[in-house]
Each structure stands twice: as structure tokens, then as C-alpha cells.
Amino acid sequence: MSQAMTHQIVISGVGGQGILFITRLLAEAAILKGMSVFTSETHGMAQRGGTVVSHLKIGNFYSPLIRPLSADGLLALKAENFDQHGYFLRKGAWIVVNSDYDLKPKYDGPLFSVNADHLARKIGNPKAVNLILLGFALGVIPKISEAKRGMFCSVEDIKTVLQNRRPKENMTTSAKEKLDASLKAIEAGYNFF
């Protein structure tokens, strides 16, 4: 299969951080753009504060799982996920990590970190760490040259997906507020860099 048309991304964190939600947003963005998509996620015990990891594969694949040394990128919602799931990455893959300390010395590829917990508190939405990190990733990854394969979708695509999730007509006020808060979190991450 043509390498240029595929993307394999590992997204990890701990239960309750909303890993599955951002995985879905990305997957729906892929469908929006006419691509095929697979995601795979751990359920069950993981929901009780254990490690959660999801695999996102865009393009023509058979298997929903990413093999070690194959992923194009890692979105890590906890700094420790870097040690846990770094083995999935191919050489030169990007890492976007939520961390309050510098991880650069530990990795020789493109690595971008942001203290998303801090940023989330700052915008008054402490649970939105996932969306902030996603926004941040969409901001920084295109900065890596196209040849090394960046992201398959833009921040606008993700916003469209978020907006399409509910029909605009009869949206309740609380749903509207939630949507606005989500968009704001994405923006905050995106503009951070």
C-alpha cells in the first residue's frame, strides 16, 4: 500500500482523560475527507483509571492494530505514556505530549510538548486536556515537512466534525455551551505554539 496515503497514530493516556473522544473526532475527520479508517481501543478495566491506548489507522489497512515500529505519531496525554508506548513509533515519527517538563533529551525525532493541564485550568475547562492537546498537535505537526508526513486533517476539519455531531437546529443551551467550550479548547491548544 502506498505509504503516502496512510497514517498510523497512537493516542494514549489514562482512563477518564477522553482518549476515545479525540480518537473518534480524528476518525470522523478522516471519513469526512473520504478516507478509510480503523480505530482500536482498550475498554473495560481501563475505564477505572488504568492506562488507555487507542490506535488510529487512516488509509487502506486490514488490521485495526498498529505494530511496533510502525506508527507515524504519538499523542500522549500523560508524559509517562512516552515510555509506555514509544515502542510503536517508526524512526522519525512525531510525538506530541502533555508534559510539564522537557522530554526533548529523551527523543531524537520531532517532539512537541505542552502543559495541557495548566492550559486547561487557565481557560477554565480542566477536563479539556484532550482537546487542548489535539488542537496543539494540529498546530505543530504541519510544521514538520510534508515529506515526513504530517497530519491528514486540519484544525478546521476537526471543528467541522465537532459541529456536525449534533444537528444545529434544535440544540439545547447546554449542548451549545459544551460545543463552544470544546471549540475554545481546541483553539487554545492550536494557538499555543
Binding site: Q47, R48, G49, E80, Q84, Y87
Partner: peptide, 15 residues
């Protein structure tokens, strides 16, 4: 052969 890291996953706990 693929090497899996030894880093242990977080143990699930009661909320």
C-alpha cells in the same frame, strides 16, 4: 523480534 517495553501500565483502581 519485537521488544515490548517493561514500563508497567497503570493499575486500574476504584474511582
Amino acid at each position: 523480534p519485537v521488544l515490548h517495553p517493561s514500563a508497567s501500565d497503570r493499575r486500574p483502581t476504584l474511582c
